[in-house]
Design a protein around this nucleic acid. Structure first.
Lengths: 132, 132
DNA sequence: CTAAACCTTCACGCTGACGTGAGGGTCAAG
DNA sequence: CTTGACCCTCACGTCAGCGTGAAGGTTTAG
């Protein structure tokens, strides 16, 4: 598949896809015309790249990660195992980020739920409990 | 406490702390000298800010989120109730952000867990399943 | 054969989150 | 009263992750 189709099917711009190749996050083949030729599996690959970038992982780490993910399909190759430590610290960073966001969302939801729907209800609350 | 101490106790540079104030992520008081005067609670606030920034959330979203993390006890004031709708969409964005981070972490965790602990284990896997 | 749609490589521009001085005030210690 | 640690406000520099043309080759429908 060519770049336009991949862009439509992933929701990622063509510019971003070319940038990903530049950063060695994708390695599409080339047609005789020079057009990029993406494999069907690149659709999933792009989604992986997107979520990792959105999660704040640096692209050079993602770039080192991808070749390790394809080869055996069963964990990292021996030569890749030196990456376990950075991977684990990234995982821990994500864990605490998720916890922070979950806490924030819980409190935000509580604030929304606690807020009266209209002025009458608020005035009733003030009458019952006193003003702030 | 002044900026240097807060910087040391959070591991964040003074420049970053001034930037956070510029972005309304922190609102330190001022001493007569003009020095910033941070509250002890700002240590925790800085950690919240840091993990959200590291998770890829834009600072203006964090700025709107931080006051929501403080439990005022009685919902929004009447004049603020017009912000309910934006707050709800922020909550939804927060939800999808959490989902993205969780997806990324799940992928990382799966990769880490599939990786053999040592070469012997890997060689055993190769012997049983064949090489790539 | 031609026009539209699709692709290519530069290459400059932009935003966010700071880094890095420059030039200067504040303040406790000697 | 000066030195050194600490703080201030500009203001330009940097890097990642793209956006946005410019100038031109390729493919396909009519």
């Amino acid at each position: 598949m060519r770049i336009g189709e991949l862009a439509r099917r992933t929701g990622v711009t063509e510019r971003a896809l070319r940038y990903y190749e530049e950063q060695n996050l994708l390695r599409p083949a080339r047609l005789p015309s020079g057009y990029r030729d993406y494999a069907p599996s690149d659709i999933e690959a792009v989604r992986h790249v997107r979520s990792m970038l959105a999660a704040g992982l640096p692209s050079h780490l993602i770039a080192e990660l991808l070749p390790c993910m394809v080869d055996t399909g069963n964990g990292l190759m021996p030569g890749c195992r030196s990456m376990l430590e950075p991977l684990e610290s990234e995982r821990d960073r994500l864990t605490s980020a998720i916890e922070e966001l979950t806490t924030a969302r819980t409190q935000l939801t509580a604030l929304i739920d606690r807020t009266p729907e209209d002025d009458a209800e608020y005035d009733a609350w003030v009458a019952a409990n006193g003003a702030a």
